[in-house]
Amino acid sequence: MWSWVLHRITGVVLFFFLLVHVLDTGLVRVSPEAYDIVIESYKNPIVGLAEVGLVGAFLFHSLNGLRVVLIDFWEHGTRFHRQMFYGVVGLWVILMVPFTLRHLGFVFGE
């Protein structure tokens, strides 16, 4: 059940990110100066931490989506759904730890 809940939450987070991304990128057509100001405002530690959350949401949503596809289209998918969930969580941790360390090094200065 938690994978279902997390999949929905990460999907909503990614939807709102894409909405903001399209709006702020579209701003370049209206006023390049305003676009530069908005992009410059993103360069702070709070947004840097939010980027870690965004990458985490994207990564979990992607990996869990592949798990859902396997459950739906693999004949043994329902039998191994729990093991696949633990695999998703394990792979998520393995991929997030180095990214987080590297990214926060850039955010807070190396």
Score class of each variant (00 low, 15 high):
P32T: 02
H103D: 03
Q83I: 10
I39Y: 04
G77E: 08
L6R: 07
V69H: 03
V28F: 14
T25N: 14
F17W: 13
E51N: 14
V22F: 15
L19R: 00
L66P: 09
F16T: 01
G53H: 01
L23Y: 07
M1S: 12
V89H: 01
L14C: 02
L70F: 04
F99H: 07
V12D: 02
P45K: 09
K43Q: 00
F73S: 12
V30P: 07
Y42H: 10
V30C: 08
S62M: 11
V20F: 15
Y42N: 02
L59W: 08
T10H: 07
G56W: 00
H81K: 15
L6C: 13
E75W: 09
F58N: 03
P45V: 14
G77Y: 01
E40L: 04
L6P: 05
F17I: 07
F58A: 13
V52E: 00
A50N: 14
V89P: 11
V55G: 05
L27V: 02
R8N: 09
N64M: 04
W74P: 05
L104W: 10
D24G: 04
T78S: 10
L49M: 14
V12K: 09
F16I: 04
V52W: 07
L104A: 11
V47I: 09
T10N: 05
I37K: 02
G65T: 00
A57T: 01
V5I: 14
L19P: 10
F108A: 06
Q83L: 08
E75N: 08
L19V: 15
L59Y: 04
L54D: 02
I94W: 05
L101V: 09
M84Y: 05
F80T: 13
F73I: 11
F58Y: 10
S3H: 13
I46D: 08
F106E: 03
H21K: 09
S41C: 00
W92Y: 09
V52A: 02
M96A: 07
E33I: 04
Y86E: 11
G11M: 06
L95S: 08
I94H: 06
L14A: 03
R29S: 09
R102Q: 14
V52R: 03
V30E: 14
S31L: 05
V30T: 09
V93S: 01
L101M: 12
V20K: 04
L19Q: 01
S41D: 01
F73Q: 10
V12C: 03
P32M: 10
G90H: 12
F85D: 08
R79S: 11
I9C: 04
L14H: 03
F60G: 00
E75I: 15
W92N: 13
P32K: 07
D72K: 11
V38G: 03
I94C: 13
L91Q: 01
V88C: 09
L14N: 02
V88L: 09
K43D: 07
V93R: 12
A34Y: 06
F16H: 12
R29L: 12
V38I: 14
Y42W: 14
H61W: 15
L59V: 05
V13S: 11
A34T: 01
W2R: 00
L63W: 03
L14W: 01
W2E: 01
L101S: 13
L54W: 07
R102G: 03
V52S: 08
E110Y: 13
L63C: 06
I39N: 10
G65P: 11
G77C: 07
V30Y: 13
M1T: 06
H7I: 02
M96K: 06
L19H: 05
N44Q: 00
Y86F: 15
H7A: 11
F99G: 05
V55L: 15
F16D: 05
